[in-house]
Computed example of a mutant assay.
Amino acid sequence: MNETNAGGVRRRSVEIVVPVYNEAHVLAGSIGRLHAYLEDSFPFPFRITIADNASTDATWTVATGLTLRLPHVHARRLEEKGRGRALKHVWSRSTADVVAYMDVDLSTGLDGFLPLVAPLLSGHSDLAIGSRLHRQSAVIRGPKREFVSRSYNLLLKAGLGARFSDAQCGFKAVRTEVFHALAPHIEDTAWFFDTELLVLAQRNGLRVHEVPVDWVDDPDSRVDIVRTAVDDLKGMARMLRATVTGRTRVPAVPRRTTVPQNVTALPTGAATAVEPMEYAS
């Protein structure tokens, strides 16, 4: 996946993980659409990895079939459930410069993907999140989920001093070497994984970039809102204790430095106008 151009310059790469659990009925259509979009418009080497969270339907069969038909699609099978577990498993083993994930329903508009990862590839930021609560976002969803989402993010601001606006949007990316440093300190294996990653990043002075997104609620969502809310509150309490005791400080987090001459620059207009940077390992 780490390719070079005609002049022998290495091109930065991205691995996109799509965690799934019993999604055989939509998997082929969603991955096919994502693959076609990236092949047509994404200017960097990429890999799509389907992370099967111990599905009990035909999801794994569909996933392995897609790896035979589509050249940039790979699949991993986990025998235990948990979105956070799946992301941690794949991201920790990735050789790409940037790792990302999105939900299989593709609720978030794909036109937001290059703006999501470009600041990480250019060296401007360390993590990037899609935000449904940004004033420029276009969101269609029911009042119940809107209320739960806004309430949760207000709690994060009040309880943990969060400076990011939307912890739960299934559209995120992180520099791989940064994730490798943070991963051993992330305990959650389910839905609170995202929040824990962001809080750790903030506590360690990393830069989080937010992208307004177009987002349409999936009526077939498998998320148990009540159970997830309870687990999130428990996770917040744990993170608060960790902050008080200093356990959120991570040693040797990679920092930004000057970009090397052997890495290609971003296409014009792909990111904000900042001086290119690279990262020390």
Rank of each mutant, 00 (worst) to 15 (best):
A6D: 12
A6G: 14
A6I: 13
V9G: 01
S13Y: 01
S13A: 14
V18G: 04
V18L: 11
Y21P: 02
N22I: 07
E23V: 10
E23Q: 14
E23I: 00
R33S: 12
L34N: 07
H35P: 02
A36V: 08
E39H: 12
F42Q: 03
P43T: 08
R47W: 06
T56I: 12
A58V: 05
G65R: 14
T67V: 13
H72T: 15
R77S: 09
M102W: 01
V104C: 15
S107G: 15
D111M: 07
G112Q: 09
F113W: 05
L127R: 04
S131V: 03
S131F: 02
R132W: 06
H134Y: 04
S137K: 08
P143Q: 08
K144L: 13
R145A: 12
F147T: 11
F147C: 09
R163E: 10
R163W: 03
R163H: 12
F164R: 07
D166L: 10
G170S: 14
A173V: 08
E177H: 13
V178L: 07
H185N: 10
I186Y: 00
E187K: 04
T189P: 00
F192M: 02
E196Y: 00
E196H: 00
L198K: 04
V199D: 02
V208W: 00
V223F: 11
I225M: 09
V226Q: 11
D232Y: 13
D232E: 14
L240W: 04
G246R: 12
R247G: 00
R249F: 00
R255F: 03
T264S: 15
T268Q: 15
A271P: 06
A273L: 13
E275V: 15
Y279C: 03
A280R: 12
